[in-house]
């Protein structure tokens, strides 16, 4: 909001250099916070796409290898059909049967989103529980923390065969992959959050006669929530990355399958189309989480606003 207002001021100061209509447009947008956000988002994406299109127009980007947005987005009907990876290649099904292009995309998106969501929820619940337990019981700390730290640096790729050995194909291995990729880091993050709780808050509860379970339940858990939501947001992107790897092997349908299909059939348009869909999904998820953060954690100061004033 502040940025737009400042732009408006600049426009007014610059006078003739900017058309009055544009200045007025900026000024009218200053009051509409969400509209200005949408505007800046479109500008940001548009700038990126514009550079790409320019490279294509100048002949630097080969349309066969790096098709620009107007190409890979134009034949939605054609690309969308590929999303129906579950029944597309089954014997006896012709290419024209089954769900429409739009339905195929929606089914695939829903399947992948479900895996991300379930994986994220399971990983968070497990990691927070284990993290709190590590600080709660000293013996648990000694028993569990070394192993958790040992397994933290293991790449999700290394877990892929394990997922297949354990769960075969389907939703289970994909969800397992998401959980295992996030779990260890989130345990360590939870512990770091607990160690960062201001000691005075704990002291206050102690002087009021709170027991250990009460101190954890009423002070430590609410105190780490803001940080944990931040951790969750960071890990959301991680979940989206991992789920694609998991889906690329032996899951009936999903975005990872589409990417593999695109790779095997040399279809760059499909790759970029899928990337665009993932981007939109990840962005929306992050937006929802930020919204939840603002609603749930009303007490947090807005540092962003201060930084902008620098």
């Amino acid at each position: 909001m502040a940025v737009v207002t400042r732009d408006g001021d600049v426009g007014a100061a610059a006078g003739a250099s900017r058309p009055a209509a544009v200045t007025r447009l900026f000024a009218s947008m200053a009051g509409l916070d969400w509209l200005s956000k949408v505007w800046w988002m479109c500008l940001s994406v548009g700038l990126f796409a514009g550079i790409w299109e320019l490279c294509w127009a100048l002949g630097w980007a080969d349309a066969q290898l790096l098709p620009p947005p107007h190409i890979f987005l134009s034949n939605f009907g054609e690309q969308g059909k590929f999303f129906n990876t579950a029944t597309r290649w089954q014997v006896g099904n012709s290419a024209d049967e089954g769900p429409s292009a739009f339905e195929s995309v929606m089914i695939t998106v829903a399947a992948t989103t479900m895996r991300v969501f379930v994986g994220l929820v399971l990983a968070s619940v497990l990691a927070i529980s284990i993290g709190v337990a590590v600080r709660y019981w000293h013996v648990f700390d000694k028993l569990v923390l070394p192993t958790v730290t040992l397994l933290s640096p293991v790449s999700p790729i290394a877990w892929l065969p394990v997922a297949i050995f354990m769960f075969g194909i389907g939703n289970a291995p994909a969800i397992f992959m998401v959980v295992v990729a996030l779990f260890f880091h989130m345990v360590l993050a939870t512990i770091a959050q607990i160690d960062g709780v201001p000691p005075n808050l704990i002291n206050v509860a102690r002087t009021m006669g709170a027991s250990k379970p009460q101190i954890y339940g009423r002070v430590i858990v609410p105190a780490i929530l803001p940080g944990m939501l931040q951790v969750l947001r960071m890990n959301l992107f991680g979940a989206w990355m991992v789920v694609l790897i998991a889906e690329s092997t032996g899951v009936g349908y999903g975005m990872g399958q589409v990417i593999m299909l695109a790779r095997n059939t040399f279809n760059p348009s499909l790759v970029f189309f899928t990337i665009a869909v993932i981007g939109v999904l990840g962005f929306s998820f992050d937006w929802l989480l930020r919204l939840a953060q603002r609603r749930l954690l009303y007490w947090l100061p807005d540092t962003q606003e201060k930084l902008r004033g620098l």
Binding site: N200, L201, N203, V204, R206, T207, G209, A223, L225, W299
Partner: peptide, 18 residues
């Protein structure tokens, strides 16, 4: 052990922000 009979008030704000 600490007791509610002896309340401690700290230098920095120690209110629960939530």
């Amino acid at each position: 052990t600490p007791s509610p009979q002896r309340s401690l008030i700290f230098q920095e704000t120690s209110l629960f922000p939530w």
